[in-house]
């Protein structure tokens, strides 16, 4: 009898160290470069193995999508569309069609404040080499900018740019779309909580292992030092967040800032805002939308945000902060802002 008791106790003691430690969820994070930026995927997983496996699968989804819409690669579906502008419709895969349809939707909703046909204007700028086009060159290309000239045939899955010389650039919307694909893939593979961050386009879902919300920092558009990096912190989950800012790619010449968010109506960098952060339940109303709001300015931009049922933090050209009411419950601003 005693032996049996000891045997049971012994088995129990043996099982104890084997069961504890394994399966306790932790946060894992990995970063890889895609689409000319760094993509970080954070997951709550039970093991190294699960985290690596699911993150790598999600990275693979992003890589494949990035290859299809790469503006700089001749092999991409996007380049095929651009090469055949004014000529033939190009058959594209579902994801490419999907991101173009999203771009068209936002273009329409924002009345052209976001316009993916901005390519010919974008091409003339080089923010690293500080090259900007002449006023004449800018005016000349304006006639090629019009999202209404993107012809999509849903039945045939084709896209045609109506006029020769048109160029579609999906940079303003692709990262967020990629984040959505990655998010869906993570969930499909059993991940219940995490973050997909493609540069500033972020999707947060689920809760951290301690049951708290994810903390997303919002960059200070006029950061002076490392201590000054963030202007606010958003605590949330199950949201898409996107920021468009005039401090990401820019140069200053003769006291004037030239940055990469061009106004499709003028061809010049939009000047009404320093940064716009949109917080939405859906990725559709995040990325291209933050660009549209940025270009539209604080008043018109805020209207767009309200119509979409989203929230936003808009920092206008003078540094004044405008927010939707619900932001107060989600976002805390750093002292001094």
């Amino acid at each position: 009898m005693k032996t049996k008791v000891f045997l049971l106790f012994f088995i129990f003691l043996l099982a104890l160290p084997l069961s504890c430690g394994k399966g306790r969820p932790s946060i894992y994070k990995k970063t890889k470069p895609f689409m000319d930026t760094l993509v970080t995927i954070t997951v709550v997983a039970g093991s190294d193995e699960q985290a690596n496996r699911t993150i790598d699968k999600a990275f693979s989804v992003i890589e494949q999508f990035g290859d299809k819409i790469n503006f700089f690669s001749d092999k991409s579906e996007l380049s095929a569309i651009n090469r055949n502008a004014g000529a033939t419709p190009v058959k594209v895969s579902p994801d490419t069609l999907g991101v173009i349809e999203r771009a068209l939707y936002i273009s329409e909703k924002s009345n052209g404040a976001f316009d993916p046909t901005i390519g010919p204007e974008m091409n003339m700028w080089d923010f690293f080499k500080k090259i900007r086009p002449s006023d004449t060159a800018i005016k000349k290309k304006l006639s090629l900018i019009n999202y209404r000239d993107i012809i999509v045939d849903h039945d045939r899955s084709t896209v045609l740019l109506r006029r020769k010389g048109m160029l579609m650039d999906l940079g303003g919307i692709a990262k967020g779309y990629a984040a959505d694909l990655a998010l869906a893939n993570l969930k499909q593979n059993g991940i219940g909580a995490g973050i997909v961050a493609a540069a500033g386009d972020i999707r947060a879902f689920g809760l951290k292992p301690d049951g708290t919300l994810w903390n997303i920092g919002i960059k200070n558009p006029r950061q002076q030092s490392e201590a000054d990096e963030l202007i606010a912190k958003a605590s949330l989950t199950n949201k898409a967040i996107s920021t468009s800012g005039d401090y990401e790619r820019y140069f200053i010449e003769d006291g004037r800032r030239y940055h990469h968010i061009l106004d499709p109506k003028t061809g010049y960098p939009a000047g009404r805002c320093r940064s716009v952060t949109v917080i939405s339940d859906s990725g559709i109303f995040a990325d291209g939308f933050s660009t549209a709001v940025f270009v539209s300015g604080p008043e018109k931009g805020m209207e767009l945000v309200r119509e979409a049922g989203s929230d936003a933090v808009i920092i206008d050209k003078d540094g004044v902060i405008h927010t939707t009411p619900a932001v107060k419950g989600m976002v805390t601003f750093e002292s001094g802002h």
Partner: peptide, 24 residues
């Protein structure tokens, strides 16, 4: 511009303490 990324430790974790990701 040179399309070079150097990652140390396999994890590029530059976020400040208490922050899980940065937008912007």
């Amino acid at each position: 511009p040179n399309r070079v990324v150097i990652s140390v430790g396999g994890k590029a974790d530059n976020t400040p303490k208490g922050i899980d990701a940065i937008t912007g």
